[in-house]
Nucleic acid binder design. Structure first.
Lengths: 125, 125
DNA sequence: GGTTATTTGTTCGTATGTATG
DNA sequence: GCATACATACGAACAAATAAC
């Protein structure tokens, strides 16, 4: 079994710094992170994910620009108290659902077929 | 209304040449392309999608490596007679379903929630 | 029959963004 | 912050197959 504390990089594609930022959004959406929580330092997270520290800095910078986190010099990086979390889970779920619906429709699949395929693969993950 | 002859680029993310290759796979899966069919020339498709002709060449090159198409200098690019089409629709649908299942699980959503979200957005597309 | 023009794929170099050290 | 390596996308010039003259 692999470790599972919320921090991972097993997503399929895209820039690493975006995957990390997305991961933070997901952890916020499912309550694994809440306002006031302290994020790992750039060096520590970089070591855990085996990536360059600058990549973490880049990801945190994007999250700061999104208004999700704030950096406190000498203390670390924290989830902002006014971070937008309400309804974020449903927003992200709807986004993923829209992408799946779009791909299914491009394959000329009905919603019944799409649901059937989803049920088939749900347990496999 | 936008034109809809099967060729488009409105997918969310990823390299352009991969989006084009994926589009060809989808058209093959739903029967919009069949073995022996002629694909648009690199220049024509590039003009239609407003991208560089070399980007199309790159996408076609990947499809050729996949054994799906073949190029004939001076004639054009064609779907190979022995292109694998059987079951391709289900394969691609399962791939998309797996991606959606993965994202839903990372948000701590149940399969019921995932199906509900899918139903909600199905008509919106 | 040979030459030209058009269409097509092929190949070179260049610029930008990402990841690394 | 800077230098290097890699992938992606772009641009222009090249070579082959076909049709028309």
């Amino acid at each position: 079994m692999t470790e599972h504390d919320g921090w991972s990089l097993d997503m399929s594609s895209g820039p690493i710094f975006e995957q990390i930022a997305k991961n933070v959004h997901q952890m916020l959406a499912r309550g694994a992170l809440t306002p006031g929580d302290k994020l790992p330092s750039a060096r520590e997270l970089a070591a855990r994910l085996s990536v360059n520290p600058n990549t973490i800095v880049h990801a945190y910078g994007q999250l700061e620009a999104d208004g999700v986190i704030e950096k406190r010099r000498g203390l670390g990086t924290f989830v902002r108290e006014d971070a937008p979390v309400t309804g974020m889970k449903h927003e992200m779920l709807h986004g993923a659902a829209s992408a799946y619906a779009e791909e299914s429709r491009q394959l000329d699949a009905s919603i019944q077929e799409a649901i059937a395929a989803l049920k088939e693969v749900w347990d496999a993950g």
